[in-house]
Simulated assay, not measured.
Amino acid sequence: MLAWDLPTRLAKWSLAALVGLAFASRYWGDEALVWHQWNGLAILVLIVFRLLWGLVGGSTARFAGFVSGPVGGLRYAMSLLKGQPPHFLGHNPLGGWMVLALLAIVAAQALTGLFTSDDIIVYGPMTAAVSDETIRSASAWHQWLYPFLLALIGLHVLANLAYSLFGRDNLIRAMVTGSKPAASYADRAPATPGGVGRALACLALAILVVFGGIALAGGHPFP
């Protein structure tokens, strides 16, 4: 039974890979951080794509389909503590909030990176368009957000491992294959895909928004 369509899964794993590459390029073999900046730009493209896909993508990819209010999240947490959580084809209410939190902090990390400089050889794409104070502030935030991002990623990985090992759903396998066993789920089943054409249109628009936005704001979109 379809749980997540292909564009949703490709976006998730591509984002995970790019975040890993951004960490690696920050510390190894990229003195001027050129590849690090390209990673950041690619991450921003994927973030914008995921926001667009959250509006027009498959049923389980849409924010309206898996983001619940605080009451829904609390109710699910209580059922989880009781050992009787309802099962969702897509993200459960807590998982939905985790998706939003990850997108927000990764986006913040990438956005602050646009304005970051070490005043020697590293200049972010937007440093030419803002004041020195903005650059100092963005550079500081870029560093401060780092441990919070690592902590949230660790929590996300642990939660998925725990749910896959001890819950009824193998979330990791489902995010790879896109399917879950046929069963009774609390949300819509089976999922409806968003379509490749629509995904490509969202990707093209995301590229235009990121690179065009930087250029229009007076920055240098290409490191």
Rank of each mutant, 00 (worst) to 15 (best):
D169T: 09
D169A: 05
F148E: 05
N170I: 00
L171R: 11
H142T: 00
L149E: 07
A151H: 11
L149T: 13
L165I: 07
T177S: 14
A174F: 01
L158C: 09
S139R: 04
A138L: 04
R168I: 02
G167V: 01
Q143A: 12
G178W: 13
H156P: 07
L171S: 08
A162W: 12
D169G: 00
A162I: 11
I172E: 02
G178H: 13
Y163I: 11
L152G: 08
G167E: 03
A159H: 05
A162D: 07
A140Y: 07
L161R: 05
Y163Q: 14
I153L: 15
I153Q: 08
F166C: 01
A162E: 06
A151C: 12
H142Y: 01
S139T: 15
L171D: 10
L161P: 09
R168L: 04
A138D: 04
L149F: 12
V157M: 12
A138W: 01
A151K: 14
G178S: 15
G178V: 14
A159R: 02
Y146N: 10
M175L: 15
L165R: 09
A162N: 10
L145M: 01
H156K: 11
L171N: 09
R173C: 06
T177Q: 11
M175P: 07
V157E: 08
D169W: 03
G154T: 06
F148I: 11
N170K: 00
N170R: 01
A138T: 02
W141N: 02
W144H: 06
S164W: 00
G167Y: 08
I172S: 02
R173K: 14
Q143W: 10
L165D: 08
A174N: 01
L150G: 06
H142Q: 01
H156I: 15
L145H: 00
G154F: 01
A140N: 13
P147Q: 09
L152K: 09
P147C: 02
L171G: 07
F166Y: 09
L149V: 15
V157R: 07
L161G: 09
L171Y: 09
N160A: 15
F148V: 12
L150M: 14
S139M: 07
T177N: 10
N160T: 13
A151W: 15
S139P: 10
L152M: 13
L145P: 03
N160C: 14
L165H: 07
N160K: 03
I153E: 08
W144A: 03
H156A: 15
A138F: 02
A159K: 02
